[in-house]
Design a protein around this nucleic acid. Sequence first.
DNA 1: GCCTAGGTCCCGTTG
DNA 2: CAACGGGGCCTAGGC
Lengths: 262, 262
Amino acid sequence: MGKEVLSEETIEVLRNPPLQDAARTITDGLRSHRTLLIIGNCRVDYQGRASSKLKPGDRMVIIKRDGSVLVHRPTGYDPVNWQPPGCKLQAYTEKGNLIVRAVRERPRETITIQFNKLYLLTSMALIDRGEFSLYASEEDMQRAVLLHPDLIEEGFKPITYEKKVEPGFIDVYGMDRDGRLVIVEIKRGTAGREAVLQLAKYIGSVKGEVNREVRGILAAPQLAKGAQKMLITLGLEYKRLDPKRCAELLRRSSVRKISEFL
Amino acid sequence: MGKEVLSEETIEVLRNPPLQDAARTITDGLRSHRTLLIIGNCRVDYQGRASSKLKPGDRMVIIKRDGSVLVHRPTGYDPVNWQPPGCKLQAYTEKGNLIVRAVRERPRETITIQFNKLYLLTSMALIDRGEFSLYASEEDMQRAVLLHPDLIEEGFKPITYEKKVEPGFIDVYGMDRDGRLVIVEIKRGTAGREAVLQLAKYIGSVKGEVNREVRGILAAPQLAKGAQKMLITLGLEYKRLDPKRCAELLRRSSVRKISEFL
DNA sequence: GCCTAGGTCCCGTTG
DNA sequence: CAACGGGGCCTAGGC
């Protein structure tokens, strides 16, 4: 068995550590790119594109080895404050508090976390090489349509995908059985007005270039009410397309690469 | 001092616990709505709007008391798998593994986390009533414009805000010094084509109603390149407006409610 | 670097 | 409830 399991030494746990000790452990952990977990009572300040203040309370702070920082409150999906990967970190004590500061350049943003008490500090060398695969994404739907154009309609023939036009990228670009150009916009969830606008923009752009009839088809599992009205007004079409069914079709097919079909 | 600090008893830490013990502690923690932190080697399956598989590796799992679940790898801002607040949880052992399952209804989604080894299990009663305030949001910019219409241009007089027209809501609706109607669209970041289209739609709608000249001003800290071209083509205008400065202005002003100005 | 578009987006607000 | 828009969105992909 090639299971990778951490030796006990690679995870260091301090309970209620003095803030001085904590600062040292965090600094060491940052230098060796370990994953740090800090649980304690803190306030947080953020300055950057916006700014925010968070008054004291108990939080969990995760510092990952790529330099991302997450400050989590005891409720909610979102971190209340954060820093994306790549920021510079430092930790030190000042006036009896533990300060953790994370700075990001471009855009210049800073978060400052001020702990007055730590309950738990963990410094870890986590190993994670596990492969992640996601199914039924919009990309799967696009691949399925290219593999099985009949999902859109009988006789539909894709010409290209992710075609660049002035306003953006056309998901699938092809021709119907009567030789008319077709632009397909795919959505993996309920398609709203925005999706219709997107499709309309592409059509406008292509019409401006080719000067002949261009059909627009919105392919999605569902249509929002407002989107339906707009679709009709603009003379566009809708085709029900289920992401899960697309993923199924792909699994059955042995072919993998989009490029093999065009 | 009214500082709330956790007693040591309210945080329970198990190092390398047997999975049976862990299952019991987690089940207890779930029942009493404690915050749980599980660090160990696991695989994760997700089934719902999409589906995913994550092969074994070391991860941190946070279970919050509102029923949100986050599975974090050692890198990246985003959790690799998650469940938003409100899902139902259970924990048990099966074939020598610790299983944590989180189910959400509407949409029906399930994540299953299978641990083969735990490094650390923490069960906590965190207390966090700290107030959070965010400054320099788009709403702040709108408030600032209503308070100080000169931010748009000298002589500008707001009439109303969030005015409903057919395609949506006009951020600020007013009149310039020459009595022409003005529609202001505010963006807190770089304004793209989308913003210009939005503004154009509002103008079209209002022109259709009032049958006289209507100016459109896009107020944002910056203009995207494509947006500028489109703006010129459509005969619209741009006014630089900095969110930070808006937030500043608001802080200086003691008045808080938008409704007081109209 | 900017820009475009997707996301298991999440989240708040409104009809 | 669905629908729509915002977000310090973040992230990936092109140019």
